[in-house]
Design a protein around this nucleic acid. Structure first.
Length: 89
DNA sequence: CGTATGACGTGCA
DNA sequence: GTGCACGCCATAC
């Protein structure tokens, strides 16, 4: 069944997963990649988010497994502030 | 098509 | 505890 294909494209999958992140909750790139179906593509996750940085995608809720905010198009500081504001921190 | 990049993750000094 | 280097995958140009 190609129609039922889950191969929506890793990119779309990642964006979908990230957009599903509840408010006040953060997820690690690895977790996102895992939910996206490619636990070893966490590297591409960051790339996709950066190349897509969709306004409907709370990419600021995606942080590293170390607990560091990682990076953000608007500035890591801003990202951290948003997380703090949402209570994720 | 092939190359270069990247917002990671882990290990080691 | 901190910093550096390598490895991994997918995307974009």
């Amino acid at each position: 069944m190609r129609a039922c294909d889950k191969k929506k494209g890793f990119k779309e999958k990642v964006l979908g997963v990230v957009s599903k992140i509840p408010k006040g909750r953060t997820k690690s790139y690895k977790k996102v990649a895992l939910l996206a179906g490619n636990p070893g593509a966490y590297r591409a996750v960051g790339n996709i988010l950066k190349r897509n940085r969709d306004k409907k995608i709370p990419c600021h809720r995606v942080i590293r497994s170390d607990g560091t905010v990682g990076g953000y198009n608007r500035g890591e500081k801003k990202k951290k502030e948003i997380l703090k504001k949402e209570g994720a921190f």
